[in-house]
Design a binder for these strands. Structure first.
Length: 114
DNA sequence: ACCGTGACCAGCC
DNA sequence: CGGCTGGCCACGG
């Protein structure tokens, strides 16, 4: 229980089932700090245990992926999620999001819910 | 021991 | 409708 917020974030992220994704804000809320979504991202980038914490299952509220992602290369995160069964949706004609090829996770079906 | 910084989200003007 | 700021925590130099 004396774990820091970061540790609790890792614990929550580890609980994300395969084929499902969670938002930074949701992880923050489950970690006990609904206003600390910023630090969730930082926590994962600051000291993620390689091969243990599925950081690739954590996405933006919009469903887009994190910039500067480094599992093995940009776009690798998307392929990992697709491999797990996460569905992606094509970008809107007006909305073009760089860093994710414009493709977003189908939050309507793949967002992790308790 | 202090200050700065870091994968966000939502409210406000 | 759009852009900007605030909030929150831990860790490195």
């Amino acid at each position: 229980m004396s774990e820091t917020f970061n540790e609790q974030v890792y614990d929550v992220v580890r609980r994300i089932p395969r084929g499902r994704v969670a938002t930074y804000g949701q992880v923050a809320a489950l970690a006990g700090r609904p206003r600390a979504a910023r630090f969730v991202g930082f926590a994962l980038h600051a000291n993620p245990e390689p091969g243990v914490i599925p950081c690739h299952r954590v996405v933006f509220r919009d469903g887009s992926l994190a910039p500067g992602f480094a599992f093995g290369g940009p776009g690798e995160q998307r392929r990992l999620l697709e491999t797990e069964g996460v569905m992606f949706v094509p970008p809107d004609d007006d909305s073009v999001n760089a860093g994710a090829d414009g493709w977003r996770v189908d939050m309507a079906q793949c967002q992790w819910r308790e």
